[in-house]
């Protein structure tokens, strides 16, 4: 059973095909990058996987379960068990680092003790344990990036989706975070779907790449 599967997915915006007849499979534990030029539909694919968009045609399967098909979302984002790191990180500015991570665990109905333990472990892995009471705005760009990754991983998702998360960082920080992400993957073994337009990030992070061109996945 694949972790993620798209079957002949089609998506149009204003009469223009953004994704057409795209099919691929991602196996559990794989590190897959989705690569393509601007406007090739990378983010649209990720948003369909997350559950924010429904494909006009075709089927989306997560963990073998059909979650969306032919214009309808059958399983909402909160029931897909996915983590996501957004391009602008989307850290909640009114919540501390701890509260940012706690949100998903509260939604799962975990007890305070379990939540504390789980958050402590994840923050230690991203080396931010001393910043749990800090608000995101007071952190550096790299630290914010690691909070976003920690928040996406804390609920132990089936797969981690990342939408060009390093695009706004300088080269040194990019290298550091790429290494850190690969370390985390080696430790935790999650499935990673990483959207990027950078060939360098594609080579570094993915062990497989899906190239999007002319709204189609032309090469796997």
């Amino acid at each position: 059973m694949s972790a993620i599967e798209l079957q002949k997915v089609w998506k149009t915006y204003g009469g223009r095909s953004v994704v057409s007849h795209l099919s691929f499979r991602i196996e559990k534990g794989e590190r897959v990058t989705i690569h393509g030029p601007s406007g090739s539909g990378k983010t649209t694919v990720l948003r369909m996987l997350a559950g924010f968009l429904a494909p006009d045609e075709g089927v989306v399967l997560i963990g073998g379960q059909e979650v969306a098909a032919n214009g309808k979302i059958h399983v909402g984002p909160e029931h897909r068990n996915l983590g996501m790191v957004f391009q602008d990180l989307a850290l909640w500015p009114h919540l501390t680092v701890y509260q940012n991570l706690e949100f998903a665990l509260k939604a799962q109905g975990l007890t305070a003790d379990v939540r504390r333990q789980r958050i402590g472990e994840v923050l230690a892995r991203v080396r931010l344990d001393e910043f749990s009471g800090t608000y995101p705005a007071r952190l550096s760009g790299g630290q914010q990036q690691r909070v976003a990754i920690a928040r996406a991983l804390v609920a132990q998702p089936l797969a981690l989706l990342m939408d060009e998360p390093l695009s706004n960082l300088d080269d040194d920080l990019k290298d550091e975070l790429c290494t850190h992400l690969l370390d985390l993957h080696a430790q935790l073994g999650f499935t990673l779907v990483y959207v990027t337009h950078s060939k360098e990030e594609m080579r570094k992070i993915g062990n497989r790449a899906i190239l999007l061109k002319d709204a189609k996945g032309v090469s796997v």
Binding site: G51, F52, Q108
Partner: peptide, 17 residues
Amino acid sequence: MNPSLEQAARLSAGWPA
């Protein structure tokens, strides 16, 4: 509002929360 702030929350909780 930046939509991704809500989307980030939607990945783990329903609309009321």
